[in-house]
Amino acid sequence: MFLPAVRRTLLQAIPTMIGIVLLSFFFLHMMPGDAVDALAGISGSASKETMEAMREAYGLNAPLPVQLLRYFGNVLTLNFGQSINYSSPVFNLIVERLPSTLILMLTAFVIALTTGILVGWVMAVFAGRWPDRMLTSISLLFYSAPNFWVGLMIIVLFSAKLQLLPAGGSETIGVTLEGWHWLVDRLQHLVLPACSLAAFFVAIYARLTRASMLEVLRQDYMRTAAAKGLHPLLLQFRHGLRNALIPVTTVAGLHLGNMLSGAVVVETVFNWPGVGRLTMSSLAARDVNVLLGILLMSSVIVIVTNLIIDWLVMWLDPRISA
């Protein structure tokens, strides 16, 4: 049942990833300057001969088609090249930063999905009344506010004013912690950036759950189940919310790529040591190899997520597998 969907997604993923590499490669090389120019600007001075020698060493003076073919050949062997800015293999850089970003994304994803579904369910149950209107206004605020503004306001409120949580970083610097104290410290640093990243998606899932739930509640089988005397909570959760979650689950999978791009802003605001900050620093340094490696990694994450979402949708509604 699930294997055909896996094969179909994998077959679609191959041309998609090739297209992503091609477009990203040419668009990134359209930027003015290169990594050698960025390094020369940081150092303050560099002779023309030195810069040409560096371009020759890193292969930056070769024609673009030659660089592209060379890059494709390296990717097939899982060699993403060398970072000029960090003087380290790109694969090692991404693997080192990826766990922090995945923890941030998955935490924000769980917060957004659970909170959005619960808020949307409350909005649907109290449709047209004051809880619905109040939660709708809050959802519109989170939907319209940019991530960096939400992050800054969260820092001002919970860190500067209330002094409940740290303002940035992933752990307390200069302190050696172990066991439970280490875990609590990491969780305290995770709360604010995860909530900031999840705020926009909470609004989307809440509105979508509300609309889907209201549509399900109008179906004939819901009225039949109510006429049989089922408890309202059992009716809403077992028969209503499960069917209402199908569009929410599908959209949530599609939004994971957006969440990865939003992590770039959130990691910069909260000084979170993940792939987002690596992207910003590599973009400023014109480090094309690192940027291409991050784009490939993002593509793989989105493809794997789509596979998981396909399985969840078929589990929620077995008719889809037919």
Rank of each mutant, 00 (worst) to 15 (best):
L11C: 07
L135C: 07
Q163W: 01
V122R: 01
V265L: 12
W272Y: 14
F27L: 15
T268P: 00
V150G: 04
L135N: 09
M134G: 09
V304F: 13
G116H: 12
F148G: 02
Y86F: 13
L254Q: 10
N85Y: 14
E171N: 13
C195V: 15
L187R: 00
L22C: 12
S45K: 13
Y71A: 09
F91H: 08
L197P: 08
D220H: 05
V119S: 10
V313C: 14
P318L: 03
S261F: 07
L104I: 05
Y205S: 01
I84N: 09
A322P: 08
R242Q: 13
S88M: 12
I204Q: 09
A167V: 09
S299V: 10
L256Q: 03
G253V: 04
W121D: 04
M54P: 01
M31H: 04
A226I: 00
L93T: 03
S137D: 00
M30A: 15
V288S: 02
V66N: 00
L241D: 03
R242D: 08
G41I: 05
I103S: 12
G168C: 02
V156D: 03
N79S: 12
P166L: 04
Q67A: 03
I42D: 12
V248C: 11
F26P: 10
L28Y: 03
N61F: 00
F2T: 10
L292W: 08
L214C: 06
D132K: 10
N289L: 13
A263N: 03
Q219E: 14
R242W: 04
V248K: 07
K48Y: 12
L241A: 07
S139N: 04
L118C: 11
V269N: 03
Q67T: 06
P89Q: 11
S212F: 02
I117E: 02
L93F: 09
P318D: 02
L102E: 05
G257Y: 05
L98S: 07
G73A: 05
M222C: 04
M1A: 12
A38T: 08
E96L: 14
G179E: 14
F72T: 05
T172K: 04
F72C: 15
F201E: 11
T115Q: 03
G179L: 14
V125Y: 10
V290Q: 06
M213Q: 11
A13K: 13
S299M: 09
M54Y: 11
I154D: 00
N61W: 01
R286N: 13
N258Y: 15
G257D: 05
P247M: 12
S298F: 14
F25V: 01
G81P: 15
F26S: 10
M259K: 04
A38V: 07
L22T: 15
A225Y: 11
G41E: 13
L98P: 12
I117Y: 05
N289M: 14
P273F: 01
G120I: 05
E171Y: 14
L217W: 04
W121T: 15
K228H: 07
H181I: 10
L190P: 12
T250I: 05
I117H: 11
T50D: 13
F2D: 01
N92D: 15
L93W: 05
T16A: 07
R210C: 06
L141Q: 02
R223Y: 05
P32M: 01
G33H: 05
Y205R: 07
L102V: 15
F91D: 07
A112Y: 14
F158T: 09
T9W: 01
A226K: 12
S282R: 06
R70Q: 13
G257T: 08
M54C: 05
